[in-house]
Design a protein around this nucleic acid. Structure first.
Length: 795
DNA sequence: AGCACGCCGACT
DNA sequence: GTCGGCGTGCTC
């Protein structure tokens, strides 16, 4: 059931049902006093001894929502991440497929309102009904509940159970010509035009979406109406299954021939796919080395075996890119699954996959749960990307689950990256994965030259390091003269990091989180990047009422302003979450760059992912140190990956590229390795460090976090939890902490955490299971304990 | 999660 | 004697 239970429950079939219940079907079942969604895991199970099974309320869909082959996968995921099995499945299915009952209070008569009548009753009297959220609060209070019962008995109000809404399928109206019925004569103008368009657009007679017609011709509505009146067109509804918004109309012809490296990689992958057994590969290929073509050829091999292909990408922007290539090669067989789709689009894609109509699925991490009966190949692009980690609810890692799913399905898994995560590369070195390498770019140009600017040595009047060093400035100038484009990267948005009081030193902070607000000059506001809380820019210090508040630090917005000052004639553009607030803005900024309408693009890591900018020859990194100071054992690896990725944007087509990296720590191994394009040294350095400190891959981690709205309770819970762990028989080899989390308060909730570490996964797993049975009382109730297996971030 | 139940302190 | 808040345990 979709409830936080760590066990499964057994139900009887609905009264009078003759058809068998099948694995994967969704059900509505009674649970306590409510109705929740259940998922059939085993239709042949017996009712446990001493239990009286309730009956299934309803079978939600006759066609199973997921194939039976996924049940062991779900069970494993639940066990691995210590998450209730029903919640695992709920997280795996598209939103809106798991319904549950809520209570609403409705007006059925006329209540007599008195002075002491509570607010909710007044609201109910005026609006006629109380929404679910308010109703829950009312019913939770004993006094109010009593009043509800009295009024209900008097017939004035009624409490009803309401099921949450199910997502519907996106259906579209289609139009098709009926053969021979459209006589050419006496057609009105709109009719004639619609017939003409239909003949042109509907070659195979499957019909054309009415919206498509309407886009081409404004008289469509009138034309169709009259044509259908005389029986010349048929109007029908069709569930649409391909994402109509996706950029699928580009054509990418397959290259005439593969590079020897590509050939070699495929020579290893394709036979493995044909063998239909688990086979993991790491494809280590520098940016621009042609990984996508290897993916496409491998996918074709899996399809030829009659099996499906799952392609995971770290984020939506990359999904659309890769999608264009896959659609160009495989057409209608491609489905898309990511959070950018509307609920109904998502459901439509899901059903297309489920029915077998779509045998290629491209999506973000959640696509690892795609209901594909028989995947033969799972591709994980940019394997190292932290976006694969889900950071709330079921905290899974898309890449790790891809490997697991491939293992269970007897499929190949192909992980690609220019900068593999240290843990993955370690497995390749130890022959757990097969290593395939694409060491060279396809284009004639070698990797770009990377120059390091030591900001400590740059002299300025103020004595502070400059935002843009003279060297970077000269390079940008050169590019402007030559008419070539520059990318300027800074992984921090906003105008200033913080605003501080000149008189008392107080930093303007968020009301809900323990962080400084970021100044956004354009919006004339200070904004919390965690919860969205904002204050107007004009403000006095909350501490001493001084009006002397000054900005400190800089982000992309400030860099853009600085560049505008330095290069008043350059065409500047900025790409970050603020400037690209929606999909449309995002694509329009990218398009401008691709069309050469932008000289300098400033941006956060949004500019580093995937996009192919043929005319960019210079990449500038404003500050390579931003990630190095984070309390994170992966800080070095991450910094290297980011630098390598952004450097890869320079010089991709027929022009050579160069990169200027500004830093305060030019000798840091992550930065030095990035300068030399030297993944192997980075790997060796990281590995040595981690061996010494027992971090992955030499030890495994589970992060335990306590959270509540009370600082005191959270602290007490964390301390009690740590004490309890020390007395447990199944305790981990090491417990680091507890301590307040680096972000000690987020969205009004206080946070403490501790890290369990052990060289044995089994022991850690047993420890987590035992802990669940044995939580100290301070950790129950208001305080929530979150178990994060293989944490990616410990902020 | 959501619900019931039981304990306990505050108030009438 | 009653009410409301809070902790605890169960859900086929």
């Amino acid at each position: 059931v979709a409830a936080p239970l760590f066990s499964t429950l057994t139900y009887l079939p609905p009264e009078g049902r003759e058809n068998p219940i099948r694995t994967g079907q969704r059900l509505l079942v009674p649970l306590g006093r409510r109705t929740v969604t259940g998922y059939v895991l085993d239709p042949d199970t017996a009712v446990p001894l001493g239990m009286e099974a309730k009956r299934i309320t309803a079978v939600e869909d006759e066609e199973p929502a997921f194939p039976a082959s996924m049940v062991p996968f779900f069970r494993f995921v639940a066990g691995y991440y210590h998450f209730p099995i029903g919640e695992v499945i709920r997280a795996a299915l598209p939103a809106g497929m798991s319904r549950h009952s809520t209570k609403v209070i409705e007006l059925t008569g006329v209540p007599d309102l008195r002075d002491d009548s509570p607010d909710w009753l007044r609201q109910l009297a005026s609006r006629g009904r109380l929404p679910a959220g308010a109703a829950r609060k009312v019913l939770a209070r004993a006094g109010d509940r009593k009043l509800v019962e009295e009024l209900e008995a008097a017939g004035v109000i009624a409490v009803r159970e309401k099921l949450s809404k199910a997502a519907g399928l996106a259906r579209r109206t289609f139009v098709r010509l009926v053969d021979g019925e459209a006589g050419e004569k006496d057609l009105s103008r709109p009719e004639a035009r619609v017939v003409e368009l239909l003949r042109e657009m509907d070659r195979d007679g499957d019909g054309v979406a009415r919206s498509e017609l309407a886009r081409r011709y404004s008289g469509t509505a009138a034309g169709i109406k009259r044509l259908s009146g005389r029986g010349a067109v048929e109007i029908f509804e069709k569930t649409v299954f391909r994402d109509p918004l996706a950029g699928g109309d580009m054509h990418f012809p397959p290259p005439e021939r593969l590079t020897p490296d590509q050939e070699q990689a495929l020579a290893a992958i394709v036979p493995a796919i044909r063998e239909k057994t688990f086979a993991p590969f790491l494809l280590h290929g520098v940016t621009g080395s042609g990984k996508t073509e290897v993916y496409l050829k491998a996918a074709a091999a899996a399809l030829a075996e009659g099996r499906g292909v799952l392609v995971l990408v770290p984020e939506i922007a990359l999904a659309t890119q890769i999608e264009a290539h896959f659609v160009s090669r495989f057409g209608e067989e491609v489905a898309l699954l990511h959070s950018g789709l509307t609920r109904s689009q998502r459901l439509g894609q899901w059903q297309g996959i489920r029915s077998g109509a779509a045998r290629v699925v491209i999506g973000a991490r959640s696509a690892v749960f795609a209901p594909m009966a028989d995947p033969g190949l799972i591709i994980v692009d940019e394997e190292h990307d932290p976006a694969y980690k889900q950071e709330d609810g079921l905290r899974y890692h898309g890449r790790d689950l891809a490997i697991l799913r491939a293992q269970m399905a007897g499929a190949a898994v192909l992980m690609g990256s220019a900068t593999p995560s240290v843990a993955t590369f370690h497995k390749a070195v130890n022959k757990k994965f097969r290593l395939l390498t694409l060491p060279q770019r396809i284009s004639p140009h070698p990797m770009p030259e990377i120059r390091i600017v030591d900001l400590k040595k740059v002299l300025t009047v103020s004595g502070r390091p400059p935002m843009i060093s003279p060297e970077l400035r000269r390079e940008i100038e050169k590019n402007l003269e030559r008419g070539e484009q520059s990318l300027i990267f800074l992984n921090r948005r906003g105008y200033a990091n913080m605003v501080v009081c000149r008189d008392c030193g107080e930093v303007v902070g968020c009301r809900n989180c323990r962080v400084a607000l970021t100044l956004h000059q354009m919006e004339a506001a200070m904004v919390c990047h965690h919860c969205g809380f904002r204050l107007p820019r004009e403000l006095v210090c909350t501490n001493c009422r001084s009006a002397r508040l000054v900005p400190l630090g800089f982000g992309t917005e400030r860099i853009e302003a600085e560049l505008a000052r330095l290069f008043p004639d350059a065409r500047l553009s900025r790409l970050d979450r603020d400037s690209a607030a929606n999909r449309e803005r995002f694509f329009s900024i990218l398009k401008q760059v691709r069309n050469g309408e932008t000289d300098i693009l400033v941006g956060t890591q949004m500019i580093t992912k995937g996009h192919d900018f043929p005319r960019v020859t210079l990449v500038g990194v404003i500050c390579a140190d931003t990630g190095l100071g984070l309390p994170d054992y992966k800080a070095g690896e991450r910094t290297f990956q980011l630098l390598a990725q952004v450097a890869g944007r320079a010089g991709r087509a027929d022009l050579p590229g160069r990169v200027v990296v500004q830093t305060m720590q030019p000798d840091h191994y992550a930065i030095a390795c990035a300068r030399n394009h030297d993944y192997h040294t980075l790997y060796q350095r990281e590995l040595a460090l981690r061996r010494r400190l027992r971090f992955p891959p030499f030890g495994f981690l589970v992060c335990l976090r306590c959270e509540s709205e009370s600082e005191e309770r959270t602290r007490e819970a964390a301390l009690a939890l740590a004490e309890r762990i020390k007395t447990m028989q199944e305790r981990p080899a090491e417990l680091l902490g507890p301590s307040p989390a680096p972000l000690a308060k987020l969205q009004k909730r206080y946070r403490w955490h501790m890290l369990a570490r052990d060289t044995s996964r089994t022991r850690l797993k047993e420890f987590c299971a035992a802990l669940r049975q044995n939580l100290p009382r301070a950790c129950r109730g208001q305080v929530k304990v979150i178990v994060d297996v293989d944490p990616e971030s410990m902020l």
